[in-house]
């Protein structure tokens, strides 16, 4: 379809395994250009948003956001190949969902099969992207890979637009969320530094997905991370104000929510 070389992303938390896969790919598929390597799922998603490679090789087991969770964010925008060292359950799930996967240490013959399949799909006029219906499978797999797989699944990551780039933010790093016309403003911390970003998901929809032990709605348009609260002061008319740790903003607490902060 186009003359440009196909591009790929490799995500693995172990640097030697990233270079190992790159070395094997260079032999099996010399035209493929590895445009970026990522150290974890979050980096993989952020780099993918930046560079939109054709193929993503995702290690299943990565710190923070796993390869399977990253796959959910990337969705059907790329061809995905999962890489795992040993996980019978994951392998079964991939087989079941007709997803591409490689087992570490990667065998050159097996990689050649995968490359042939990928070339075929990339070469098709309207490249058929991974089948739909795999989302549920990936969700189940992601829940199982997490250690607290039994706990109710709350939102753990938010994909934000920060200026022109996309950032993936852990929900624990979010200080508060504020409804803002068409968007929701997300105030978070990048290694302690206060940052802000926007998402399209309405506040109401987010509120249902948040862990109620950590986040509380305090106003029609504000949800706050309870750990980020410095103090709460009562003001007139049965309302209150929240001051945050390390941020200058003051958040309003409306009358119907002041009971959250009443002393017993």
């Amino acid at each position: 379809m186009s003359e440009r070389r196909p591009t790929a992303l490799i995500a693995d938390d172990e640097p030697l395994l990233r270079s190992s896969l790159a070395r094997l790919l260079a032999k099996a598929w010399p035209e493929l250009e590895i445009v970026v390597e990522a150290r974890n799922g979050r980096e993989a998603v952020e780099r993918f948003e930046e560079l939109a490679p054709d193929v993503c090789f995702l290690d299943v087991h990565m710190p923070g956001l796993s390869g399977v969770e990253a796959a959910r964010f990337i969705g059907r925008r790329a061809h995905l190949v999962f890489v795992t060292a040993y996980d019978q359950y994951a392998v079964q799930a991939f087989e079941h969902g007709a997803l591409d996967y490689l087992v570490k240490p990667v065998e050159p013959a097996r990689l050649a099969d995968t490359v042939a399949r990928l070339k075929e799909r990339l070469g098709a006029a309207h490249a058929p992207r991974p089948a739909s219906g795999t989302e549920a499978l990936l969700d189940a797999l992601a829940a199982r890979l997490r250690r607290d797989g039994a706990a109710p699944v709350h939102l753990r990551w938010i994909r934000l637009s920060v200026g022109p780039s996309v950032r993936l933010v852990a929900i624990d790093d979010v200080d508060y969320l504020r409804a803002d016309e068409k968007y929701t403003l997300v105030a978070w911390r990048d290694g302690g530094k206060p940052e802000e970003g926007l998402i399209r998901t309405p506040l109401k929809e987010l509120s249902a997905q948040l862990d109620p032990a950590r986040f509380a709605q305090v106003h029609r348009s504000v949800i706050v991370n309870l750990r980020s609260i410095l103090n709460v002061t009562r003001s007139s008319n049965e309302t209150a104000e929240i001051r945050l740790k390390g941020r200058p903003e003051i958040l309003p607490v409306s009358r119907s929510y002041t009971h959250l902060f009443q002393q017993m």
Binding site: E14, L16, L17, S20, A85, Y86, K104, P105
Partner: peptide
């Protein structure tokens, strides 16, 4: 097994 195979994959890369 997860530890073993991952480690062996690393060692193979060092050798290669």
């Amino acid at each position: 097994p997860h530890f073993l195979f991952n480690t062996l994959a690393n060692v193979r890369e060092l050798v290669d």
